[in-house]
Write a protein that binds this DNA or RNA. Sequence first.
DNA 1: GCCAGGAGAGAACGAGCGTTCTCCGATTGA
DNA 2: TCAATCGGAGAACGCTCGTTCTCTCCTGGC
Lengths: 182, 182
Amino acid sequence: MEQTAEATRLLDAAESLFYEDGYQAVGMDRIRAASGLSLKRIYAMCPSKEALTLAVLDRRDDTWHAALEAGVDRQADPRARVLAVFTWLSEWLSGPGHRGCAWINAFGELGGTSPVVVAAVRAHKDRFRRRLRQLVEQAGGTPQVGQAVFLLAEGAMVTAGITGETIAVDQARELVAQLLPA
Amino acid sequence: MEQTAEATRLLDAAESLFYEDGYQAVGMDRIRAASGLSLKRIYAMCPSKEALTLAVLDRRDDTWHAALEAGVDRQADPRARVLAVFTWLSEWLSGPGHRGCAWINAFGELGGTSPVVVAAVRAHKDRFRRRLRQLVEQAGGTPQVGQAVFLLAEGAMVTAGITGETIAVDQARELVAQLLPA
DNA sequence: GCCAGGAGAGAACGAGCGTTCTCCGATTGA
DNA sequence: TCAATCGGAGAACGCTCGTTCTCTCCTGGC
């Protein structure tokens, strides 16, 4: 999908509706109404709902990782940069109506029926895991600690989504602080 | 729902179809075909699809925790009992066609639209967390370690579901072994 | 033997889905 | 000024959903 103003409106509308209510619960008509575009215009930009779903996940992967980097870059010390991941995660997940990790949720809903969505989710999680391992390595942690940090982050995200609170993320941050070398 | 042979057939069919393909992707007609019951019989036992969804989650909560206890009871030493949770999880998640934690997936799909499903997911996760904390306490671990074990378990389950492999669970087990007092 | 009653299966219903098609108005070139 | 072409809006289509209804058949009492 090209990067026009209309494409942005479409992706914005679809992204928030999909995130709030899920993919199958949101019809194309609601996306039409929320974006202010006509169905014909939408289908001219995007051949199907599944393609729109993938486009939403793809764009969100970029914005999500960009926001993560911005959070990390608030700190200079390598150890603090790892902890900053969790500080940022806590902020990211604390907005009203937040419902956890969009990719975990997408996998839960579409993982059994849509292989392309599964591939998108795996790609996102791989990217996150690699980045986390890199940050941990720069802070002097072993790959094993890197994997622990990743699993704690995943557990914290899924728990924050289900409970609606971000305490789990803060707890994970404390645990990571103990795992990293001083 | 009473515990008749037909109710069991219904719940068995619905549980495996829901788990494999998700809730909205499975129509009542597929459940009818898989269970061998007529629609009228199904609706005589269960007033709606949402009620069936909850009944499936409820029964699975019991069978899941019973299987967990059976896994834990293979060990007598308190420390080994905590590790046995992860050994059992790895087995539980290694079957063909496995797709991670049914409650996390249910939350991903229906969390935005069905408050009763959210409540069922929270109840299940609370129960698991309490049991885990208890086991960790009996092994001499602090509540903080108990929370770490819970977050690692959640992260491992969600990662195992997405990747289709159980390595993450085994890694989590190793990390827990390091966290627990010797 | 016959009629009343209940349970069976699956056709039917209204709604909503993703996607396409039709119609209408605007615009452009001579 | 007019005709031809293009693009937009949303009505329409075929399908599937969850749920209900109808019709049929079997059973049991007199």
